[in-house]
Design a protein around this nucleic acid. Structure first.
Lengths: 340, 340
DNA sequence: TTGAAAGCGTTACCAT
DNA sequence: ATGGTAACGCTTTCAA
């Protein structure tokens, strides 16, 4: 297997020659260092311009022991959430002239370790571990030496490792308050499976918003589905519509559940949002494309990506490792299912 | 702004010392070269193992003028299509020990050029231009010198640059045939805006499938919407349901249109798929989450990514630049909207 | 079969 | 203010 011959590139030596100075002087001029006269700096800059010189980053990396690249390892590259976070990370990072090297671990620990080692061999300056699935927390740090790490979408309490996750509690408050502000009085809650941290947080947000508004938390209005899937939302919707008195709103712990609920409601002739307003959680891509586009509490995915990127850059530049769990505020996306 | 001190890494010199050989011998042993005795090779391998040595890829790149990294520039990182293709590219590439460096151009030519130059400075071995939006074709190649390029999701006829796109014509045949095989006889077609190449191809596929089956192409059953948006599908659906005789199937040039059509049909009490079967095109993430999950002709996004990755690796390794437009076959995703 | 030395393109130290 | 030289970690002649 033969490899292609790479192109001949213009080096700093060429620039120096054209400018009539030494290699080291050219380097200083190009890097805006002091101790080089304005005149020569101009000549070097002109020469560089003329030759269309751009420094070889590989050589720079070797010398500076800094690659200006970070690795991003994701659980689930096809996941619908991943891409927005990726976008945020890239945006935050590119403005510092860093690039992101992408790796997919498929949630497999062995593969994750292999990718991590590859990234380390590439001398990356930092790593973002973007975890969609739940992960054995703390594992990866072992291999990382002193390369800073940020957890994204999942969190860890490892010392020196910051995490960026959505503020589920606050988001649930926001969704509930939205319904309250719309004048809805009896607000049901359809939760996901118990024993997840999110379901706990979202239910507590719902409860908190109600109580803050001086309304009682009524367990009869709270439904728990066994799984997140739409079909289980449908089941919850059936229970809901058989209540003696139909609530005038329902807040669901996920969009998938909300869509199932809307299905059940539609089936029995109840109108959304006139008879009952529906609000979901997550802002899944399909939520806008329902017959009744779904109002939902959106996960701040891009903002999370941006924050993770910034935290990482900060850790790289300033050696600041703070083991904080950052909860980024959700935001509300108003659509038809909750009225106007 | 101070930079962190990188960790002390184990180099090949350490390995050589531990094995009691010279640096160059160690290198040869590690790279499975000939002219090194089995005994020393073993000692070197053991030493490397013991020290957990992994070669510094940056130094390797500098020496070999080959980075084992490719750049992927996308128009639209948040796009729902992008992520599957990314996944495919990564999968194809990782098996050759390449990595992908991700860049977002937002469809902006200036930014694209800047990213390209950054990638080139990083000595990447190849580039994939993943274009969701239409692009001024041929532009980027100018700056690329002899670094191989593959276009993905968009195409170019530049010499030496292969392109990978979906086979829209074949996909439309597939969708139409599916309805035919289901025994549907009068199949309407809802097309997107004219003057797009895809709309032409998809309509021709529909026509071809009909004619191959010995059915006439009936212009009265063909509707053209002004835009791709769901609302325009809804309008088409309204026209459709007012035909003297309702067709027993409708094939839509996109999922968004199909969803609009289903809306209109639902409104007038027509049942999908019993009264009329509906098939879409694209396999958008929301299509599975409709009240009546949508049967659709799926774009082979991941396969396209894989192919693009393989073509690029091939071009890098073998200097084979073929300016072919590869049309990857679509596949059918059967859901409820077309019956069972 | 082994090892010394040169070189990849850059930056940084230390002379001048 | 400028330039020679070494060094980053690796691979690759070339000579022994």
């Amino acid at each position: 297997m033969t490899l292609r011959n790479p192109s001949t590139k213009v080096t700093i030596l060429d620039v120096a020659r054209l400018a009539g100075v030494s290699k080291s002087t050219a380097s200083k001029a190009l890097n805006n260092q002091n101790y080089v006269s304005e005149a020569t700096r101009q000549r070097v800059l002109d020469a560089a311009q003329k030759l269309n010189f751009s420094p070889n980053k590989v050589a720079q990396s070797l010398k500076q022991k800094r690659s200006y690249a970070i690795g991003l390892i994701t659980d689930d590259l096809e996941g619908l959430f991943t891409t927005s976070m990726l976008h945020g990370v890239d945006e935050a990072i590119i403005s510092h002239n860093f690039n992101v090297i992408l790796c997919n671990s498929f949630g497999d620990a062995a593969r994750e370790k292999a990718r991590l080692e590859m990234l380390l061999a590439r001398q990356i300056d930092g790593v973002i571990l973007l975890g969609y699935k739940v992960r054995e927390r703390g594992l990866p740090a072992l291999v990382l030496g002193d390369v800073p790490v940020v957890y994204l979408y999942q969190y860890t309490v490892l010392p020196g490792v910051p995490s960026v996750i959505p503020d589920d509690f606050g988001g649930a408050i926001m969704g509930t308050q939205h319904l309250l502000e719309l004048g809805r009085r009896r607000i049901a809650f359809v939760n996901g499976p118990p024993h997840y941290e999110v379901t706990h947080l979202r239910r507590e947000g719902y409860r908190h918003a109600l109580e803050t508004a001086g309304k009682p938390y009524d367990p009869n209005l709270v439904f728990t589905s066994r799984k997140w899937h739409q079909n289980f939302g449908y089941d919850a919707g059936k229970q809901l519509r058989e209540l003696a008195e139909l609530p005038d709103a329902v807040f669901c712990a996920s969009d998938s559940l909300a869509i199932g609920v809307m299905d059940a409601l539609h089936e029995s002739g109840h109108r959304v949002p006139d008879d009952i307003a529906v609000v979901g959680f997550d802002n899944r891509p399909y939520s806008a494309h329902q017959r009744r586009p779904l109002t939902t509490v959106a996960l701040p995915l891009k903002a999370m990506g941006v924050l993770a990127g910034e935290l990482l850059i900060d850790a790289i530049m300033n050696e600041t490792h703070e083991s904080v769990v950052h909860r980024v505020p959700c935001y509300l996306v108003r659509r038809e299912s909750s009225g106007t």
